[in-house]
Amino acid sequence: MKKRAFDITPGSCLAGKWNGHTYTIIKKLGSGACGIVFLCRSSQGDTYALKVGEDSSRMMMEVNMLKKFSKVQGAKLGPSFVDVDDWVSPDRKTHPFYVMEYIDGVPLKHFLKGKSKEWVGIIAIQLLSDLENLHNEGYVFGDLKTDNLLIGNSRVRWIDVGGVTATGRAIKEYTEFYDRGYWGRGSRKAEPTYDLFAVTMILLEMSYPKRFEKGNHPEKTLEAKLSASPLLKPYRKIIQQCWMGKIQDAAEMKNKFSSILLKRSGKRSSSRMQKRLTTQESDNVELAALSLMAGVVFGVSIFSFWI
């Protein structure tokens, strides 16, 4: 954002010019390329996330997407939509804002610290089943990246639906590291496989939190990084298949991950259980993580019987 002439502090009240709803700001949650997101409370006392921006068109695009997916039955795709309005600041400037479900979660990066390796696969499965639903609705996420993922209740949720694009159109927004075009692995057309590629890069980033550049031979760089990652060893084949365009949709990829996880869960040795992403964990946390993980793996197996 270029100019931020207004000042929104905790306790201040934003009133909508059109709908008249008011929201009390609790705190700032974060800021992005096109706005600031606050935690707020409505006059009914409900807690929401509220985004104030400058670029009214872009904000409306996001709202259009949120509205669309609030209607999708069953699975929740992105935060649900609550309200959209304009706020006139004391200096009489108009700022578009919208209100959505507050997702109480931790960023994926922090969440993975100290978790067992199996979480890599579990996150992939969760992401892929959300993508499966989104793709079935005729949309592609587009700008899928680690920064757009929060984990709440051990479930991955995506925020920032600004890049969601109707299937067959051009991807409008992307981040190079996750973009298959950047890696010379395909077009920037919104196709389900575009998102699948981004999933593999989110997995690679778990191994290489600082990411890496493509260098002179993008394809070789990717292969080398994948081969050098012990964390991704179990999924290496799936990831390679995805890169070679051999996986067509999210469901297929999800099933591949499920079968790897299930195979491992059967003959897991205690030594393997001890391998943590980081080792400074108290016994208590470890125990909790183990039981949680057992539950999730179990959940996954039930899940795969369903399909």
């Binding site: 059109w18 009214s56 068109s57 409306m60 709202v63 259009n64 509205k67 108009t94 578009p96």
Partner: peptide
Amino acid sequence: IEELPPEQRGEVVEVVDELG
């Protein structure tokens, strides 16, 4: 566009996107 009510603004933005 900025001065339209949010509902209509949303529709116009959709048209602009389509043209793009």
